[in-house]
Structures are given as structure tokens and as C-alpha cells.
Design a binder for these strands. Structure first.
Lengths: 354, 354
DNA sequence: GTGGTGCGCTGATGCGCATCAGCGACGCGA
DNA sequence: TCGCGTCGCTGATGCGCATCAGCGCACCAC
């Protein structure tokens, strides 16, 4: 996969010869500088434009880029081990938002599908990364490489992280998981639950930490509430686990991911438990597909499509030299709304206070 | 959105100074030409590599491209008025296949989300298209611009159309709708139906034509069969339409699109008709989501994910100078399989021959 | 000592474009 | 007529890289 494209392509020099001017004039006309530094009379300008139209000239973006102009290309990179194809529900709404906003802004998207995997994560800054082809870049992924982020900051390469980041000076648009998880947890407590189990994953990305903090925060606001955090991958969520939790007094489960919530529902069914009759269950994410088959979970709904769009919009502002972006605006958190489903009611038996 | 990226970026010249050699040597080492045209002793090579590693050098892809080397970037363009975001079910599997293959081939994808719309279609070759940045390009869309295709062919720009094209010398990977539609139609006829209605759209793209031809071909193979073609957009598929078709002797409906098939099912329900009891129904496409809610339609299943992957693979071979691709391989059609569902049985009443 | 040879490296060039100093021509006032 | 400014345009330069002719040197054969 190499080779040269466009053997018969038209260059500014050819335009210039046809129009009887120099290449510089063609460039000036093309870039609308005809009335600025140099002034080009209408007669000449129109003649050049005529030839441009006739030949169907298309600028060589590589040359423009090399000459120092932006090319309205935004890179999209993800740190997950495989590039998130559309099949993976987590990224689908994100990419949809990014694409829609890109069309709005009139810029192209360069998807770095080629990034090599090292140490379980994909690398952005490898030997011949095409990163520098783009004006800026969006970074996706639960866990990012702090060193690479710092390096990009140091080099002054414009980028925006999708999701909150702890690294200094990293611009991001994230989701306010702390407030959202706290609100959902409070809703659980308001329903009368006092003993809650939080099922979470092992990973240590910022969004994971934020969710955990939010749940703890929500519990902390209500006296007499008890929170048990349980690290459990999907396959570890068994009927036995739920039975044990119930035996320990737990009346409500907060799951971190939609997959975990699905496992909770399945395990409950297998254990002969009903939701929310025997156990309330809520989750901090949207189900993959809000179809009729999935139980109508009470949940936190993170606006992922908007997250994608807002991230690209922020990058657009960073790249706009006319936009004097306040530092405070370089970091934003979007609100998550609590969606009422049918899996949260008042606790049934012993745990109620009567 | 402009501005320059990478103020502090490392160039080959800097590497050269640090290593005490010339820029040319750095280039030679980087490109593995150290044993070819020029020979570089290991001592020098290792010294240069050392500096490269220390500085974390990343090549400027724009410069490489300008200097005439491929950059392993493949453009993805669609002629539909809006770039197909992941939400649109038609393109989702296609893009998934393309992305997966891109990761396999180790190339990046440049999505031309910025293309302007003119005359109802998006334009690939506009003033400052970033097309020339890519080594080659994949073209999607039901209807393409024949002039643009011819122009690309004339310029020698490497590209592959996703879907069969009538334009001369256009390489493509398509779906064998003719054979597939014929096979499905034959299956309908084999079930005993002799009076079939084909519901199709107005558009005139190659794939539409192929499906029509396939249905006609299938009917033509069975003596005594009758085919009625009905151009009907989704909203024109009403209970009345089905009732009229039945009254005219039709016992089976072949729908072109999944949306049409869904409308047929809905209209049948509204008219008090059962499928396949009163009317058999088959469709030449997969349903958007093969979930439990959709009726289990007998249908043609076009391998869209594979279509995307094979298209990119073909482009990869075209771009590979070592691959002496036979002309015949530049155009391929993939087989569609017939999937047996529950919406095709023998005709119920009058139309049977007994 | 002379001619020959190959190794290791450098300098120069061009890719297509943006940018700007500056040149020639022309007009105008003195 | 001369000086000076303005208009319209051109030539030169650099962006970062790949490529190659060719230079200087050491070494060898004769």
C-alpha cells in the first residue's frame, strides 16, 4: 500500500501558465488575498478563476499543510485495544455526535485505525503516526497514557480529551459522573433504602473513579446509610452473590455498567428473586439498546452523543485563532440525567424502618 | 479552525545535528535504506536510532506525502446528502467492515465529512478537497456521480466503489443482487406462488436496477408466473394497497427494502391479514436490527460487513505496487444468501393450482 | 607511484503551496 | 524633466522529507 496518486493532477503552476500569470498570483486568488497584501485587478482575477473552474483544480492538502496552513482535518484516536467499530455500542453514539458536528463545522475526520498496540493500549505517538497531518485531535478511551497527554501539551499540539482527565492543562469535555451518581444514589436512598451495594469494575480511569466518588458522596449525605462496594466483573455477578448481599441486609444494587446491570437481572431471575420486589437495581449507564426486551432500568443517562459533539466543538474553538477562549471554558462537564424506570421501589422487608 | 500544530516538533534536521550526521542519513536510516542504495555502518545507524528514540521523533506525514511516498491513509466518501453517522443502520455494518479491515491493513481512514452538497448529492472533487491527502479512496452511496468517477479514472487516482458501477474502468466490490434476487424469487415460485408483486423504490442506482432484474430473471425461469412491479415509497404501502393486490390475485409480495417490508407487515395487520397465512412476504435486505421484535422475514441477506472489508482489501491490492492485480479481479460481486424465515409458505386459496 | 575501486557520507534538488520583498511601469506633482 | 508613490505582478524562499549523483578517503593491485 503505497504508490502515488493523481498522475495527471493539476497544479497551481499549470493554472498559472494557462492564465499567463505566475504561480503566486494563482495562490493569492485562491486564498482570497486578492485585496489584501497584494491587490489583483478583477480582470486578472476573473481570468484565473476561469481557468481554475475549467481545469477543476483541487489543491494538494499535503502541500498546504506543509506550507503552514490548517487543513480542517481533525484526528480521532482511541486508547482501547481495538478501534471502536460501529458495532460496539459504547462508542456508537460518541462517534455519531462527532461526525454530525464535523459535518456542521465542515471538517474531515482522520480515524487513527492503524495505531499499534503496546502494553495493552494503543499508541498515538509512534514512529510514523499521521497525527501531524491533522490540525487537532480528539482522544477517546477509558484510560489514556498520561505521558502522551503531557507530551502533546508540551508540544502545543491542539487536542481535546473526551472525558475528564487528571493530567494538568489537558482540555476536555466530560460527563459529570460525580453529581450524576450522587443524584441517583440519593434517589435510591429517598426510596427508603439504607443498605446499598455498589458493583464496580477494577479499572482505574477517571470516569470510574468519578462514579465511585459520586455514589459515596450520595450515601454520605444521608445519615444511617450503609454502602458496600463490590468489585465484580460481569461473570462474577452470580445468583449466589445476590443472595449473599440480600442476606447481609442489602436492599438495592447500584451497577456501574449496563453489562453488569444485565447480569444482575439475569442472576436475580436465576435466584428466584424479582426486581424490584426483592431487590431494587439501578445503573450508572444507558443500556446498549433501549429496546422492549431490556428491563426498564432506573438509571443515569450520560449524553454520549452530545459529549462527542461538544468535544469537537471545543476543539474547533481551540483551533480558531479569532476565538479567545477563556481558560475556564477549556474544561467542561456535561450533566447526566436520572431516568426513572421500573427497577427502583421502596425496600420490601426487613431493611425498611418501621 | 486553522493554526499550526506542533510548535516544538522534532525534525530530521534536528536529529541529524544531534547525531552529527546529515539529514539525508537520518532519512535513510528511518526508511530502512541503510543497506540499499547507500550503505550505513551499524555504528552510525545505531547512533541515529538512539537519538530518534530519545527525541521521540514523529515523521511529518504531510511532508512524506509531498515527497511522493504513500502514507497509508484511505479516504472514505459517501454520496448521500449527509454523512452516514453510525445511527443509520444501512451504513453501520459497512463502516464496521471497513474499520476492521483498516486495522488489519494498518492504515488510517479519512472520513470526508466536510464535502459540500450540490444538486442533492455531496461532491468529492471540490475546491479544497482533502482527497489528495489519501493514497486511495472508498466511495459509498446508492447513486454516484458518473463524471466524478470518470475523472478519477482519468487522473489515475486509486479508488474502489462499494457496490457495482456501470461506469467504465471503475473498480468495485458489489453484491450479486441479480443472482440473489433471482434465487429468492425462485424460492417464492417454488412454494407455489404464481402471481407476485414487487415493491420497489423510484431511485435509479445500479443496485436498485440489479434487484429488479434479479426478480424479473427469477420469474422468467418459471412458466406461467406473473410479476407486477409496484413503485411504492414507504408511506404508500397501505392496507388498501395490499387488499387490492390480493384482489388482483397476488399471493406473495417481494419488498426491496427492510423499511418497505416492515410497512407491509404493519399494513397487513391493519387490514386484518395474516402473514404468511393470507399473503407471503419476502424482502431483499436484512432488517435493521435482527431483534426478537421484528418478524422473522424470509429474505436475502447481503453481507454488508464483508462488503466493506473486501472493498478496502481490493483498494489495498490496487495500491500495492508488488501486487500485479489481474484486471478481472478489479471487479467482484459477493454472494447474498437466502435466509429462511416464517413469512413464506404455499399460497392459501385460489392461486394454487389444483 | 599510479590508476582503480568501493565505502560512507553529504549537498542539492524537487514535491506543491503560501508568503513577501521588491521590481518595472505608470501617473502625478513640482 | 525629475522625484516619488502606487499598482500589478514576479521571483525567491521555506515548510519536512526522499532520493541520488557524486565527493573524499582508504585501500589494493600493479
Amino acid at each position: 500500500m503505497s504508490g502515488r496518486a493523481g498522475a495527471g493532477k493539476v497544479t497551481q503552476r499549470q493554472i498559472a501558465e494557462l492564465a499567463g500569470v505566475s504561480q503566486a498570483v494563482v495562490s493569492l486568488v485562491l486564498n482570497g488575498k486578492a485585496n489584501g497584501v497584494s491587490r489583483i485587478p478583477d480582470s486578472t482575477r476573473e481570468r484565473v478563476e476561469q481557468v481554475i473552474a475549467e481545469t477543476g483544480y483541487t489543491a494538494n492538502a499535503a502541500a498546504r499543510r506543509l506550507a503552514g496552513v490548517g487543513n480542517r482535518i481533525v484526528g480521532v484516536f482511541t486508547y482501547e485495544p481495538a478501534f471502536p467499530t460501529a458495532a460496539q455500542d459504547f462508542y456508537t453514539p460518541l462517534l455519531a455526535g462527532i461526525e454530525a458536528e464535523a459535518e456542521l463545522l465542515g471538517c474531515d475526520l482522520l480515524m487513527f485505525t492503524s495505531a499499534p498496540v503496546r502494553a495493552g493500549r494503543r499508541r498515538l505517538l509512534h514512529g510514523n503516526s499521521r497525527l501531524r497531518l491533522a490540525d487537532g485531535c480528539l482522544l477517546l478511551g477509558v484510560r489514556m497514557d498520561g505521558d502522551e497527554l503531557a507530551r502533546l501539551v508540551a508540544e502545543g499540539f491542539p487536542f481535546v480529551a473526551v472525558g475528564r482527565r487528571d493530567v494538568a492543562d489537558v482540555p476536555y469535555v466530560g460527563l459529570d459522573y460525580v453529581a450524576g451518581a450522587a443524584a441517583l444514589t440519593e434517589r435510591v436512598l429517598a426510596a427508603g433504602h439504607r443498605s446499598i451495594a455498589y458493583l464496580h469494575l477494577e479499572q482505574a480511569g477517571e470516569s470510574i473513579v468519578d462514579r465511585m466518588r459520586g455514589v459515596e458522596l450520595g450515601c454520605g449525605r444521608v445519615a444511617g446509610s450503609r454502602l458496600e462496594t463490590v468489585q465484580a466483573d460481569d461473570h462474577e455477578i452470580t445468583p449466589d452473590l445476590l443472595v449473599n448481599l440480600l442476606a447481609a441486609g442489602t436492599t438495592a444494587v447500584v451497577a456501574e455498567t449496563a453489562a453488569q446491570a444485565a447480569r444482575v437481572c439475569a442472576a436475580a431471575g436465576a435466584a428466584g428473586l424479582t426486581i424490584p420486589g426483592d431487590l431494587s437495581a439501578v445503573v450508572l449507564a444507558d443500556p446498549p439498546r433501549p429496546g422492549p426486551e431490556a428491563p426498564d432500568l432506573t438509571r443515569l443517562s450520560p449524553p454520549r452523543t452530545r459529549l462527542g459533539a461538544e468535544s469537537l466543538r471545543l476543539l474547533g474553538r481551540i483551533l480558531d485563532p479569532h476565538d479567545d477562549l477563556p481558560v475556564a471554558d477549556r474544561r467542561t462537564l456535561l450533566d447526566c440525567v436520572v431516568v426513572d424506570g421500573r427497577t427502583l421501589t421502596a425496600p420490601a422487608r426487613r431493611a425498611t424502618q418501621r
